[in-house]
Simulated scan of single mutants.
Amino acid sequence: MGIRRGRELASAVSGLTDREFRVLVWYWFATEESQGAVMMTGADVAKELGMSPDTLTRTVKVLKAARLLVEAGGLGRTTFYRCTPYLAFIGSGFAHREAVKDWNPPETTVRQPRDHRRKTTKGGEA
C-alpha cells in the first residue's frame, strides 16, 4: 500500500475509529511472516491491546468487512487473522505480486465518519 493510501486510512475521512486503526496497526506489526497468521487468541490480543475480547471481536469484524484483516486459519473455535497483503507483506517483490493476485484491494473508506456533535440545540429543538 502506498503512502497516500496509508494516510487516507489514518485520516478521519476513512471512517476508522481510533480503536479500529490501533487494532489494524497492531496486526500490521504483529504479522511476522509473508502470509503467516498472528497465532494468538482473541483474548490474548485483547489483553495486549487493553480492551475486552468482545470489543476486539466487534473491531475485527469491521476490519474484515473492509478487507483490511484476513482470516488466516484457525484451531478449534479460534480464528487467526493477518493483515491483507496490500498493507503488510514480508518478502520479495515477485512474491508480493503473487500474494495480491487473489485478493481485492482493501477499502480506504470504511464508512462515513461519525458526527459526535449533539443533535439538539438549546430549548430542545432538533
Score class of each variant (00 low, 15 high):
Met1Ala: 14
Arg4His: 07
Arg5Cys: 08
Glu8Phe: 13
Ala12Trp: 09
Ala12Gln: 11
Val13Asp: 14
Val13Trp: 10
Leu16Tyr: 10
Arg19Ile: 15
Phe21Gln: 01
Phe21Met: 10
Phe21Val: 03
Leu24Ala: 13
Val25Pro: 02
Trp26Ser: 10
Trp26His: 10
Tyr27Val: 07
Tyr27Glu: 09
Phe29Trp: 14
Phe29Val: 07
Thr31Asn: 00
Thr31His: 04
Thr31Ala: 09
Ser34Gly: 11
Ser34Pro: 05
Ser34Asp: 10
Gln35Met: 14
Gly36Ala: 15
Gly36Gln: 14
Val38Thr: 00
Met39Trp: 00
Met39Cys: 02
Ala43Tyr: 04
Asp44Pro: 00
Val45Asn: 07
Gly50Trp: 15
Met51Pro: 03
Ser52Gln: 08
Asp54Met: 13
Asp54Arg: 11
Thr55His: 06
Arg58Cys: 02
Arg58Gln: 10
Thr59Trp: 05
Val62Leu: 03
Val62Ala: 11
Ala65Ile: 08
Ala66Arg: 01
Leu68Phe: 00
Val70Asn: 03
Glu71Cys: 01
Glu71Asp: 05
Ala72Glu: 05
Ala72Leu: 02
Gly74Gln: 01
Phe80Asn: 00
Tyr81Ala: 00
Tyr81Asn: 05
Cys83Asn: 07
Cys83Ile: 02
Tyr86Ala: 03
Phe89His: 14
Ile90Pro: 02
Ile90Gly: 03
Ile90Asn: 07
Gly91Phe: 09
Phe94His: 11
Phe94Ala: 13
Phe94Ile: 15
Arg97Val: 09
Glu98Ala: 14
Ala99Ser: 06
Val100Tyr: 11
Val100Cys: 01
Lys101Ala: 09
Asn104Gln: 12
Glu107Phe: 11
Thr108Tyr: 11
Thr109His: 12
Arg111Cys: 13
Arg111Thr: 15
Pro113Cys: 06
Arg114Leu: 13
Lys119Trp: 06
Lys119Glu: 15
Glu125Thr: 12
Glu125Arg: 10
